[in-house]
Simulated assay, not measured.
Amino acid sequence: MDEGQLRAFATTGKRRDPRFPDLPTVAEAGVAGYETSWWHAVYVPAGTSSAIVEKLTGALQAVMQDSEGRAQLEEIGLVAQYRPAEQVTQQTSSDMASFRKIAKESNISLD
């Protein structure tokens, strides 16, 4: 794509994207109450042994602390942040509740 063909109006997160400091958030652009963000997590099946979970947790923490790895993620717009399993579970539940509400209010179903 040639430069200048795409014009961004706002970013959807709580905060401005550090790569585009002049780009406002949707809320700053005048749409109150709108916010969405994408996040990624690593899940394991229920019943996975604590030894495996601990090993995976240690590896993920190491990756999140590696400056080169963080820089590569930030280059493509991702912010590396380790969160304990309890926080991921809470975020998943919160997001699912929000999506259910939106689907219900919009009369969206999977049928």
Rank of each mutant, 00 (worst) to 15 (best):
E3C: 07
S94K: 01
E74W: 06
E35Y: 07
W39T: 06
T36S: 15
D2C: 06
D111L: 12
S106H: 12
T48M: 15
D17K: 02
N107Y: 09
M1G: 15
Q87K: 11
G33W: 06
A10Q: 03
R16D: 01
L23D: 04
E35M: 09
P21Y: 02
I76Y: 10
E86G: 01
E68Q: 09
D66H: 05
P18K: 07
S37I: 01
K104I: 02
P18T: 02
K55Q: 14
G77M: 00
E74Y: 03
Q5S: 14
Y43V: 08
T92K: 10
A103K: 02
E35C: 15
S93E: 15
Q5I: 05
M1W: 06
A32P: 04
R100M: 12
L23R: 08
D22A: 11
K104H: 12
D111W: 09
V88S: 04
F99C: 10
T48C: 10
L23N: 05
Q81M: 12
M96L: 14
Q90C: 05
F9Q: 10
A27V: 07
H40L: 12
T12N: 14
K55V: 02
V26W: 00
A59K: 13
Q81L: 13
L60A: 04
D17L: 05
V79D: 08
A59S: 13
P45I: 04
L73K: 02
T25L: 05
L110M: 06
N107F: 09
H40C: 06
M1E: 08
R7G: 02
G47H: 07
M96W: 07
T12Q: 07
E28G: 05
R19H: 08
I76M: 10
T11W: 03
R19Y: 03
D2W: 04
S67H: 04
G69Q: 11
V26P: 01
F20G: 00
Y82H: 12
D2T: 11
L110N: 05
A8V: 01
W38F: 15
A41L: 10
E3M: 02
T36K: 09
T12Y: 01
E3I: 09
A10L: 04
K14C: 01
K104R: 14
A80W: 02
D17R: 04
A103Q: 06
R15G: 00
L78H: 06
T11N: 07
A103N: 03
T92H: 15
Q91M: 15
V53K: 15
Q90L: 11
F20L: 13
T25Q: 03
E74H: 01
M1F: 07
H40G: 03
E68S: 06
